[in-house]
Each structure stands twice: as structure tokens, then as C-alpha cells.
């Protein structure tokens, strides 16, 4: 990249980043001004409150989403998946490898269409099936979109709980699945690959484009994630804003409150066929919680929506026999339900 281009890039980052952070901190008074003074909507009126809520939440989430996706892009640029594979096969981990695989699944963003090559790649590198599963479970569960939405709508405490429990589900789920000796339920061509697996010693630093040259791509990708989910964010927040005003209090609590034993399994079952992405679903869940549904149930619901989906199951069909897909999904479901109960007890 040419020098003047570099300088331009760095100056624009130096301007945009503080500007975004400032905007984030002063967003509330700003949006108040726009809705109540500029649009002269009454603060007490229903429409005023809804418009205010809508503008505030949308902008806040988009800022968070952009910052977090760019950050994840940075992490990803410096933590190539090949390095993880070598790391997991060459180091003695004493059981911690499940945790590491799960943790890296959380911090590496990848598009769901990559899950099959990723799965095969890990199996090919001689990584045990359970560890591969740990990675595969957490990866969609804890992603940049879910984190940004949670941070924007529930605050930092709930976000941490969500992220940590996602990593835990992956760790324990991977461990349990590893113990079940499920390798025979892989499809035949995957079994062949597994038999030929070899420890990778190949060089991983092939992509030696300098950092500054990669930065535009990383920022572009962060921006493209924002653009991709923009519509869902708007739809989700609109539904949320509408529900806030019109759905009566206690409407959901009748079915989903903590003292109903079937609440969590019901929430999870309802969630599995939904393939709404996190951006669309979190604003709706936020209303559930505001209307009295306990956070544990909400988190369980959320995890099932993003972590268990039918499209993913059909993708996995290429590498797993139905029985394995069933066991895989069943195990995750059980852990999510268990976590839901646990959170409702302790939170």
C-alpha cells in the first residue's frame, strides 16, 4: 500500500474510532433531543417513547456490532485456524483441550458455511472428535452478533454470563461427546480422512501481508456484517418496540415463568426450528425478560435459536450420519436446558 494511502487510513481510524465511542456515550441525550425536541414528540406519549427506544437501541447496537465485529476480525487475522490445529495436536493439555477448543470457537468468527471444511480440517489434523465438537458447538453459540446484541440490550453482566456459559456448554458437550466414541457414525469418506490423518507440521505463516494492508479488509468485513444484519436489527427492534407497548405485562409469564417446570424445555423446543439470526431475536427476548420471563429461560431460548438449527443439521449431514447428528443436537439441547435451570436458580 502506498504511504499516503496508509496515512489516510490511520487518520480516518483515529477520527472515526473516538467519534463512535463519543457517540455511544452521548447517545441517550442526543436521541432524547431528536425525538422530543426536534421531532417534538411528547415524552409521555406512547409513540414518543417507542420512537425514542427504537432510534436509541438501533444506533447503539449498530455501533457495538461494528466495533465488536472489527475486533473479532483482528483476532481472526492474527489467530489463523491452522495455528489452532497445530496447537491442539502438538501440546499436551490434560483435558484442557476441550476448554481451549471451545474458547477458540467463541473468539474466532466464521461463517456457518465454513463449518464443514472446518470440521473436516480438524479431523484431518488428527484432533479427537470430542475436541472438534467442542469447537463446533461454541462457534455459532458465541458469535460477534450475539455478543453485540446482548451487550446493547442486556448489559455487561448478562453478556458475560451468556459468553461464559456458551464456552462451558462447548467444553462439557465436547467432553461428553468425546467419551461416547461416536467416530463410527461419521460418513465413510470422513472416516477415511480420519484414518489418514497426520499431525500437521506445515508452515502456517503463509499469508504475510502486512497488518496495515489487511486493516481495510478487516474494517470492511466488520462493516459488511453490520450491513448484513441491519435489516434484522431493525425488524427485531421494531417488533420489540411494538411488544413493549402493546403486549400486556405477565403475558409470557403465564407459560414461561420460573416456577413452571416445563418452561425451559418448552422455550428450547420452540427455538430449535427458528433460524432467526441473533440480531432479530435478541430484541424480542429482551421484551420477554422485561415482561417477567427469567433470564435463564431467555438465555436457554437464545442459545437454542443460534446454536441448534435445521439448516446446520442438513449441512452436517455431509460429514455425519443421522444418528450422530441426533446425538450431537440432543447433547447440546440437554446442556442448554440444564444451564437454563441453573441460571434460574442462582440469578
Amino acid at each position: 500500500m502506498k504511504n499516503n494511502k496508509k496515512i489516510k487510513l490511520i487518520t480516518s481510524i483515529l477520527f472515526v474510532l473516538p467519534a463512535l465511542i463519543l457517540l455511544y456515550y452521548y447517545l441517550k441525550p442526543l436521541v432524547d433531543y431528536v425525538t422530543y425536541t426536534f421531532l417534538s414528540l411528547s415524552e409521555e406519549s406512547h409513540i414518543g417513547a417507542s420512537v425514542n427506544f427504537f432510534i436509541y437501541d438501533t444506533i447503539k447496537i449498530l455501533i457495538l456490532l461494528f466495533l465488536i465485529s472489527s475486533l473479532m476480525g483482528l483476532v481472526n487475522a492474527y489467530f489463523p485456524i491452522d495455528r489452532l490445529r497445530v496447537y491442539l495436536t502438538t501440546k499436551k493439555m490434560y483435558g484442557l483441550q476441550y476448554f481451549f477448543a471451545s474458547f477458540f470457537g467463541a473468539i474466532t468468527p466464521f461463517c456457518s458455511c465454513s463449518s464443514i471444511p472446518l470440521f473436516i480440517g480438524l479431523v484431518k489434523g488428527g484432533i479427537p472428535l470430542g475436541v472438534t465438537f467442542a469447537f463446533l458447538i461454541t462457534s455459532p453459540l458465541v458469535n460477534e452478533v450475539a455478543i453485540a446484541m446482548f451487550l446493547g440490550l442486556f448489559g455487561i453482566k448478562a453478556t458475560l454470563i451468556y459468553a461464559i456459559s456458551g464456552v462451558l456448554v462447548g467444553t462439557i458437550g465436547g467432553f461428553v461427546l468425546g467419551k461416547l466414541k461416536l467416530d463410527r457414525y461419521l460418513t465413510d469418506w470422513v472416516k477415511e480422512i480420519q484414518a489418514d490423518s497426520e499431525q500437521e507440521t506445515e508452515q502456517w505463516e503463509k499469508d504475510n501481508t502486512p497488518f496495515i494492508d489487511r486493516l481495510p479488509t478487516i474494517i470492511n468485513e466488520g462493516w459488511s456484517i453490520v450491513r448484513k444484519v441491519l435489516l434484522y436489527v431493525i425488524i427485531g427492534i421494531s417488533i420489540g418496540a411494538a411488544m413493549h407497548g402493546y403486549v400486556p405485562e405477565d403475558f409470557f409469564t403465564e407459560y414461561l415463568s420460573a416456577d413452571k417446570w416445563y418452561a425451559i424445555p418448552l422455550a428450547v423446543l420452540l427455538a430449535v426450528p427458528m433460524y432467526a439470526n441473533a440480531a432479530g431475536i435478541v430484541p424480542v427476548i429482551q421484551v420477554f425478560v422485561a415482561k417477567g420471563v427469567p433470564l435463564g429461560t431467555a438465555i436457554a431460548f437464545m442459545m437454542s435459536v443460534v446454536g441448534l438449527s435445521l439448516p446446520e443439521a442438513t449441512l452436517l449431514k455431509k460429514v455425519m450420519k443421522w444418528k450422530l447428528i441426533g446425538v450431537f443436537f440432543g447433547t447440546i439441547t440437554i446442556f442448554i436446558i440444564f444451564l437454563g435451570y441453573l441460571f434460574n436458580l442462582i440469578l
Binding site: 485456524i81 490445529r85 466464521f110 471444511p117 480440517g121 469418506w189 506445515e202 455431509k318
Partner: peptide, 13 residues
């Protein structure tokens, strides 16, 4: 084709 993709040892598309 996933089999052909994997023959290049590529994990991320």
C-alpha cells in the same frame, strides 16, 4: 464440492 475443497487442505472458505 466439499471433497475437492478439502483436497486443498483449506479449513476456512
Amino acid at each position: 464440492d466439499i471433497v475437492e475443497i478439502m483436497s486443498y487442505n483449506v479449513m476456512m472458505t
